[in-house]
Amino acid sequence: MGALQPGLNAPDFTLHSTPDQTVSLHEFRGQRVILAFYPADWSPVCGDQMSLYQMVLPEFRRLKAELLGISVDGAWCHVAFALDRKLTYPLLSDFEPKGAVARDYGVYLSHYGTTARSLFVLDEAGVIRWSYVSPVGVNPGADGILEALESLERDAGRHARARAS
């Protein structure tokens, strides 16, 4: 089973972002969404993907995208991790049943018991437009996400011009 590929509808989900709050994917319809599945909270600071994305968040927002981090860690763990790393975007807890959303997206690693480091960029209609699975242990960075969002932006521009003419 591989990761869901571009062109498919992104499966909806509802997951806890904090012990008493949930986030559903369909709430983001009409916006671009980046789903960043990552293996676990608390990876070493200087190579931490989630911290890097916090720093790049203004660029993601400029390209009209919201970012959701997803791992199998519990909501309390996410709260502590987000506080420590000063992360302001939601970290979602794919905790019970464990990894169910990651399995829907084809990025659950059952022998590790975690999600693969994998990225999905969704358009305003909730369609997957780009996906990427990183080799285990490699932080994929943010350049691929930015390129995918810029490509969406170019497509949107072309469609707008086509409608106007």
Binding site: C46, G47, D48, Q49, L52, M55, V56, E59, V138, N139, P140, G141, A142, D143, L146
Partner: peptide, 13 residues
């Protein structure tokens, strides 16, 4: 500097 790094595939320091 930072964004040129991000675009060049910097993923940590």
């Amino acid at each position: 500097d930072f964004m040129s790094g991000v675009r060049s595939g910097v993923n940590g320091t």
